[in-house]
Amino acid sequence: MNFGQAFAELVSSEGGYSNDPQDPGNWTSGIIGKGQLKGTKYGIAANTYGDMDIANLTLEQAKDIYKRDYWDIWQLDGLSHQVPDALVFELFDAAVNAGVGNARRFLQRAVGVADDGLIGSATISALDRALEANGIARVEMWFLAEKLEHYTRLKSFDRFGRGWARRVVKSMRNI
């Protein structure tokens, strides 16, 4: 899977502009009612990109941000084989939707190492062993379970959880 394919698939889950005042991601502070309500567009949120004119963000600008901040960050060198496309996409999707640190921790929990949010040799070795012993489908399911569990712990799950759960279900159906 290349970046263009992953971006096309992911952005279809993100949608257009939203400035729901009950969504903490739409506020520059990340806290409802604090900072400026700038919204979210194509998954690019005010709580992460507070200096950006979110409402007028173009798809090409969003694509550049995705590539730089959410795709190129996955350095998984050291595996004895290539990371399967399905898992590459899930890492990318989780980084966009739940944050890079959380995506890294989902992976670490899925493969049974300390979840410090740093991808190093211990994580790479554990991922390699998990893929070898269990296959991509099982590792991806473990990853998605960690992602879904994260969502259920969020205060905003009652309001936004249905959409997050659908996102996970869509991934599960593609395994």
Rank of each mutant, 00 (worst) to 15 (best):
D128L: 10
A103C: 12
A114Q: 09
L131A: 01
H150M: 07
E146S: 13
D93P: 00
F143S: 02
V139W: 03
R129L: 06
L127P: 14
N134L: 07
F157D: 05
A126F: 04
S156A: 11
K147S: 12
V88Q: 12
R129A: 13
L87C: 03
G135L: 07
L131P: 13
G117P: 00
S121R: 10
Y151T: 09
L107W: 08
V111H: 02
V113I: 11
F106C: 13
D158S: 15
A122N: 15
G117W: 04
R138G: 01
R109L: 05
V100R: 09
K147G: 05
G135E: 05
E132T: 15
A86T: 10
V113H: 09
L131V: 08
A95Q: 13
F89M: 07
K155C: 00
Q108I: 04
A137C: 07
I119C: 08
F106R: 14
D128V: 13
A126P: 14
T152E: 15
N134G: 05
L127V: 09
Y151R: 11
A122H: 13
G120V: 09
Y151P: 12
A98L: 11
V88K: 11
R153A: 01
Y151K: 10
A137N: 06
V111D: 05
S125F: 02
A133D: 13
R129E: 13
R109A: 03
E140N: 12
A98K: 15
G101N: 10
V100I: 12
G120R: 08
A122C: 07
N102A: 13
V113K: 07
G117E: 02
A130M: 02
A103H: 06
R109T: 01
M141I: 04
L118K: 15
S121L: 10
I136V: 15
E149M: 04
G117L: 05
A126D: 08
R159A: 14
V111L: 06
G112P: 09
A122R: 15
L127S: 00
A122P: 04
I119K: 05
L144T: 00
V96G: 02
R105G: 00
N102I: 05
R138Y: 08
E146C: 12
N134A: 03
R104H: 11
F157V: 02
A86P: 00
Q108S: 01
E90K: 11
L131I: 09
V88C: 07
G101C: 01
R105L: 07
D93C: 00
G120I: 10
G135W: 01
R105F: 04
D158N: 15
L87D: 06
H150A: 02
R129N: 14
I136M: 10
G99W: 07
A130R: 01
T123C: 05
S121Q: 07
I119P: 14
L91F: 09
F157I: 02
Y151W: 10
L144I: 06
L127E: 06
G101K: 03
N134Y: 13
L127I: 04
N102D: 05
L127H: 08
I136C: 15
R105P: 03
A98C: 15
A126T: 08
E132A: 12
L127N: 08
S125Y: 11
L91E: 05
D93H: 04
L154G: 06
G135H: 09
